[in-house]
């Protein structure tokens, strides 16, 4: 099998967000970059699938400014991926152009039997690039996947839907799978894995080489702004019954949410 994993490098949740003075984006100073947490489930499932299907290979691919996104690719290599590709592109290229470039790059590598992504990236919470890649490659997709198996060219997954229900979905490979929590427990990179990943050559592609232009973007983000400060918390003291009574009265008369 040939397996692809698409990963995105995102600002760590712990990062304190600062907006640039012209409000066109985030101030990159002080941002800690990590692999999107859902992509870790994707990498782990790819490794398990490769190991269960001898002769298989995992290619991890990421798009963004290459100087920094290669770090997340090395993390995936250290976990156990075989090859890595970076598509050098400006920060926050939109989901349409990103998906088109990744689809072209995957096609350029001869395509895969299964393509794993995270179900969404925690920065824009958009949950779109995976489905768009599947559309460009004309292959089936399922997102929010918490169980995966592959047999004889068929992908069988469980998709978590609303209210705790699940759909069992069977797709003909090649297929794209959006990984969710519950799929597995991502491994930590081993020390030998980290050493090996450091020496690995990462293949570099440029947007232009894939026939993609920045002008193909469909969405632009503007007017970045921090949310207004919340008024400070109103503490309710007293005995439990008095606290409960005061809280209900405030929710009804002051906050008006009852």
């Amino acid at each position: 099998m040939k397996i692809f994993v698409c990963i995105k490098q995102v600002a760590d949740t712990e990062t304190k967000v600062k907006v640039l003075p012209d409000r066109t984006g985030l101030d990159p100073a002080g941002v800690k970059w990590v692999m999107n947490p859902y992509d870790e489930y994707a990498v782990e499932e790819a490794i398990k699938t490769r190991d269960a299907n001898p002769g298989s290979q995992i290619h991890v691919i990421s798009l963004g400014p290459k100087v920094r996104v290669v770090e997340s690719l090395r993390t995936a290599l250290a976990m156990g991926a075989d090859e890595a590709i970076v598509v050098n592109a400006p920060d926050s290229l939109d989901n349409f152009a990103t998906a088109k470039a990744l689809a072209k790059a995957i096609e350029g590598e001869g395509g895969g039997d299964v393509i794993f992504c995270g179900k969404l990236a925690i920065d824009d919470n958009s949950s779109s690039v995976g489905q768009m890649i599947a559309e460009f490659l004309k292959i089936p997709h399922t997102t929010v996947v918490s169980k995966f198996s592959y047999k004889d060219g068929n992908v069988i997954v469980e998709r978590d839907i609303e209210g705790g229900a699940k759909e069992v979905v069977e797709m003909k490979a090649p297929a794209l799978v959006g990984a969710s929590k519950g799929l597995n427990l991502p491994r930590y990179a081993s020390l030998p894995g980290i050493m090996k990943a450091k020496k690995k050559t990462i293949k570099e592609l440029e947007l232009a080489g894939l026939g993609i232009e920045e002008s193909e973007q469909k969405v632009r983000w503007t007017e970045y702004q921090l949310p207004p400060d919340k008024p400070s918390v109103k503490m309710i003291s007293g005995e439990p019954i008095a606290q409960a009574s005061e809280l209900v009265q405030l929710l009804r008369d002051e906050a008006k949410v009852l």
């Binding site: 967000v17 469909k218 969405v219």
Partner: peptide, 16 residues
């Protein structure tokens, strides 16, 4: 919202 609500942005469509 972006970054888990740590900031807000406006999305504009371009030739879509």
């Amino acid at each position: 919202p972006m970054y888990s609500g740590k900031c807000f942005v406006t999305g504009e469509f371009l030739n879509a």
